[in-house]
Design a protein around this nucleic acid. Structure first.
Length: 210
DNA sequence: GCCCAGGTGGGTA
DNA sequence: TACCCACATGGG
């Protein structure tokens, strides 16, 4: 994938806080919709933990409207900056100095941060070597008979982390490439994929209803 | 019009 | 534990 598609440059320019905001806003949402919301927040100078802690939930929701679920996500952003203030004195530097497994547990306790968002924050904002699993990762593994669909998120994450060197740069690129190819991973890049080259793409069987 | 997107939390059995 | 469902905008 890397040879064919090159580096994906995920979250190269933004601040750590911007990456975290993006990770929350992009939940089940296209990145293009998130970009407008980020743009609004930057324009209003709200892309800092302190500023976001002060803004009203209603105004925050209005500014991030384009990213969908805007009331829920405003609440989630507020929950994160409150956590950051309460537990890490408002400092991302202090937060990311926390050992990976402990910080992961802390993040999972914050409203609106589930496993994928926690790992995206750890990896893309904090450069902690955790592998981010998403719906595409699961589909690709199932298609290649490396998973059966019953595994938990953490089991799939463990599969990658025990099979690869613990490199944040590698995990960054790998997850980004999986998301970039998305649902068309196998079809669009069949020449890269031995399993798919040998076995033409088949749509999933229709649901059988009782 | 319909489907889907870089999920998560709350409710019910 | 294992499903359901709400959350909501914007692009193909």
């Amino acid at each position: 994938m890397f040879r064919a598609l090159g580096p994906q440059h995920w979250w190269p320019g933004g601040t750590r806080f911007e990456v975290i905001v993006g990770a929350i806003l992009t939940q089940n949402t296209r990145w293009t919709n998130v970009e407008r919301a980020i743009h609004n927040l930057r324009q209003q100078k709200l892309l800092s933990p302190a500023a976001m802690a002060r803004v009203s939930p209603a105004r925050l929701a209005r500014l991030i409207r384009s990213s969908g679920y805007f009331r829920q996500k405003a609440r989630k952003l507020k929950a994160f900056v409150r956590f950051l203030g309460d537990v890490h004195h408002g400092s991302l530097t202090k937060m990311f100095r926390t050992p990976t497994t402990i910080l992961r547990q802390q993040l999972l306790s914050v409203h609106g941060i589930g496993p994928e968002t926690a790992d995206s924050i750890l990896l893309y904002a904090g450069k902690h070597p955790v592998f981010v699993v998403d719906a595409y990762t699961r589909r690709i593994l199932e298609r290649h008979n490396l998973a059966n669909g019953k595994e938990s998120y953490d089991e799939l994450r463990a599969l990658f982390q025990r099979s690869l060197p613990p490199s944040a740069a590698l995990f960054n690129e790998y997850h980004a490439l999986i998301v970039h190819t998305g649902k068309d991973f196998c079809r669009a890049h069949a020449p890269l994929c031995e399993a798919c080259a040998l076995r033409p793409f088949l749509p999933p069987p229709p649901e059988v209803t009782a």
